[in-house]
Amino acid sequence: MAPKFRIKVFQISSFIKNFTIVSIVTLSFLLVFFSKSDLYLINGLKNISSSVIIPITRIISLPINTLSNFVDEYKQFRSLKFENKILQEEIIRLKKWQTLAIQNSRENRVLKKLLNATDNNLTLVKTASLINRNDTIYTKLINLNAGHNDKIKKNMSAINERGLVGKVIDTTSNNSRVILLTDPNLSISVKSISDGIFSLLTGNGDGKYLVSSFVKENKMPRLGDIVVTSGTAQIFPVDLLVGKVAKVEKNRFFVLPFVDFENIDYLQIVTSK
């Protein structure tokens, strides 16, 4: 009886193995096929990876993270004396500018009252801090410690003190993922401040520059022009600082973003009023 029993078990397990392999392969192709859709399963998988897998991977990579922070702090400590000197000089310079700015601000307020203009076109939804980043291999994504419990929704804009950082692409209850401007899959509609030239910018893939993918009427902006969001695509609020034109070619131009993407700690999630 024993050999017969063994043969039967072997047959069942082999069937289960084959069935599982075929199921995995089929499911994989279905997932690949529907991955860009808004299916519940795909969103569920993305939510699990943001809210469960990322915290686990952070714990496992804690030693390297600690080492990285230690090296960073050591570097900062070494340059402290030099930075202090620069900052002292900058304080003197900024004090002069402050006096000018206060004067301008008063004038601005008076002129706005005359024009009946509103003060700001942005609504601050939440200030969130960065919990981890996935911007070395392939994509340029960062994860924040605030989600739809904090009223953060998909497609909201992420900014910091220097300008536009990116766009929220996924939210879970307590986390959200932001795609950075430097990602080749994010397009932003912008205009140059001096000439009002409208164009579309995408990440160049090098993580540093943004490159124009479309320029309205093929008019190129001038070198050094400041570029802001145009607000025409209805995704980003209007007039958010993006960057400076750094290189102009025959059919395209490159923009150096104002934001230092390597030093992001806190972000503000904003939306248009």
């Binding site: 994989s28 690949v32 795909i42 996935n134 994504l141």
Partner: peptide, 28 residues
């Protein structure tokens, strides 16, 4: 071993979501 298919499936999906935000290349 047979379990490697399950590993490939899980790690493929996770790599794709975390590094590309779209399921595809690693899984395939």
């Amino acid at each position: 071993h047979f379990y490697l298919y399950i590993l490939a499936f899980i790690y493929g999906i996770l790599f794709d979501i975390l590094l590309l935000n779209n399921i595809g290349i690693h899984l395939i």
